[in-house]
Design a protein around this nucleic acid. Structure first.
Length: 477
RNA sequence: CGGGAAGUGGCUCAACUUGGUAGAGCACCUGGUUUGGGACCAGGUGGUUGCAGGUUCAAAUCCUGUCUUCCCGACCA
């Protein structure tokens, strides 16, 4: 095999962290800026984000949500009204203290999340049960002063979507958190081809200020877990802290119930760490901005006219396709299409053409297949894209299953985490002390209490007392 | 935020130890020949060495500070 191909990218099995950044750089998804933790998201990276936005935005709208935009700056007094949120985010808030050369009377926090601004807005805009529910979402960036940063996985500024809803009843709000969780989970499965586990966060791991948090957890290629999407039920915590009151159906003043939910550009990191390989990015077809590249080889009239014919047919079939007719050599174009994760490549050359065939190459397995020139190309490609999408999910699922262990003994738990990490299913008594004990093992944390709970033992894996829940544990990003 | 490593054209590195006008390969541009796994020939553009101070006749090189990146911890989507 030609090893020139691997010059730019560290092998995944040699150094996973290095491989990850190499893939980000080689496929030109993002680049560093002069400010720590603030990256330039390049066209290739942003196109993926736009694709995600497009799909999710439609799903949010189908479920009755509308987009709004809240201010970036939050006055300190407003930000500090809800004590748990303050405690959770205080170390991560960046402050604006001057405007021009004038020192501000009150400093302004740059939003790390927008519960406070939404709540303040709700307080002034809701007065009757007739005003409820409000189902809002905003696409924006937030800023959190992280100490250790990595492109997409942990940046200081990152793009996300935050949904904020407010309801008359507890039930309605609780249903909302489940509904959005399902949308996320489905998005992972259907589009990102990433198998996910849904469940509830433990008290220790829940969002600061939430009554409870649901989460979508995914496992990366190296066995490290990634919290990928969360939905939070706030109950009346924020409505009380921000004094959001409305006249209910009995004409009495009441506090409404709130939720929030979000997903971020971290998903791009997940796509890399679940699917990509030593040749670069591998994108599930449904999320790939460009699905097919046509590479003409030896650009004769015949070759070019077939390339254009295919481009036309594929485009008409709604499959995003482009022709690479740059002056690079074919080998260069193959490698570039691979590093960029284009799911399907069509090679059209005069040698094959003389035999009446063209070559189809799928990115995920790099398998080549010859088809007749006269084929129904749009149909062939459509089927191939579906195969790739399904196979990518199946492979990721198999890999996750291989890296998911069941454990009833703490020593065994330690051995697994230290030698070949992954998800560990183990029983837990519900005591934070046991959770903290687990954390001593390479920072391993409770990922979630899964919805489809099993019972692998009666006893807590740490203390041996009666267990209350099955917990999925893992090392996290 | 602690411990370690590193910053020199877009990229990978040399020159630093022993201060004396910044070099190479790749990439890029021009022309030509090519085209089935990162093509070849010829010519050319591009940096004053992360940034700020200091020492010196003279600093990429020595000193101080600072910023950024990477690795290991603590903290977090």
């Amino acid at each position: 095999m030609n090893n020139k191909q691997n010059n730019k990218i560290t092998r995944r099995d040699d150094d996973f962290a290095k491989w990850y950044t190499d893939v980000v750089m080689a496929s030109r998804l993002a680049n560093y800026s002069n400010v720590k933790g603030c990256t330039v998201i390049e066209p290739n990276g942003f196109a993926i984000w736009e694709k995600m936005q497009c799909i999710l935005d439609q799903k949010f709208k189908e479920t009755g949500h509308t987009n709004v935009y809240m201010p970036l700056l939050i006055p300190e007094s407003l930000l500090k009204k809800e004590s748990e949120l303050v405690k959770g985010f205080a170390p991560e808030v960046a402050w604006v203290t001057e405007g021009g050369d004038k020192k501000l009377d009150e400093r302004l926090g740059i939003r790390p999340t927008s519960e406070t601004v939404f709540s303040d807005y709700f307080a002034s805009s809701i007065s009757s049960y007739r005003d409820l529910p409000k189902l809002y979402n905003q696409w924006c960036s937030v800023l959190r002063w992280e100490k250790e940063t990595r492109p997409f996985l942990r940046s200081r500024e990152f793009l996300w979507q935050e949904g904020h809803t407010i309801h008359e009843t507890k039930e309605e709000a609780e249903n909302e958190t489940l509904k959005m969780l399902n949308i996320y989970n489905n998005f992972f499965h259907e589009y990102l081809a990433i198998p996910s586990i849904v469940g509830k966060k433990t008290e220790k791991e829940k969002f600061a200020g939430a009554e409870y948090t649901y989460t979508v957890e995914a496992l990366m290629y190296n066995g490290v877990a990634l919290q990928s999407a969360t939905t939070h039920y706030f109950g009346q915590k924020f409505s009380k802290a921000y004094d959001i009151k409305y006249a209910n159906r009995e004409n009495k003043l009441a506090y409404p119930y709130q939720t929030s939910w979000g997903i971020s550009t971290r998903m791009i990191g997940a796509l890399i760490m679940v699917h990509s390989d030593d040749y670069g990015l591998v994108l599930p077809p449904k999320i790939a901005p460009k699905k097919v590249v046509i590479i003409p080889i030896g650009e004769t009239l015949e070759v070019l006219s077939l390339a254009n014919d295919y481009l036309d047919k594929l485009t008409k079939a709604g499959i995003e396709t482009y022709i690479d007719n740059s002056e690079k050599s074919p080998g260069f174009k193959f490698a570039e299409a691979e590093v960029n994760g284009i799911p399907v490549r069509i090679e059209i050359g005069k040698r094959d053409l003389d035999n009446g065939i063209v070559t189809l190459v799928r990115r995920d397995t790099r398998e080549k297949r010859e088809v007749f020139v006269s084929t129904d190309i749009a149909n062939d490609v459509k089927i191939l894209l579906e195969d790739i999408q399904r196979d990518m999910y199946d492979r990721a699922l198999r890999r996750r299953e291989e890296m998911t262990y069941t454990c009833t003994d703490l020593e065994e738990f330690k051995n697994i985490i230290n030698s070949h990490p992954g998800f560990i299913k183990a029983m837990w008594c519900g005591d934070v002390k046991c959770e903290e004990k687990i954390k001593e093992i390479r920072g391993c944390k409770a990922r979630c209490i899964p919805f489809n709970e099993e019972k692998v033992s009666d006893k807590c894996v740490v203390c041996g007392k009666e267990a209350s829940n099955l917990v999925i544990w893992g090392i996290q990003y």
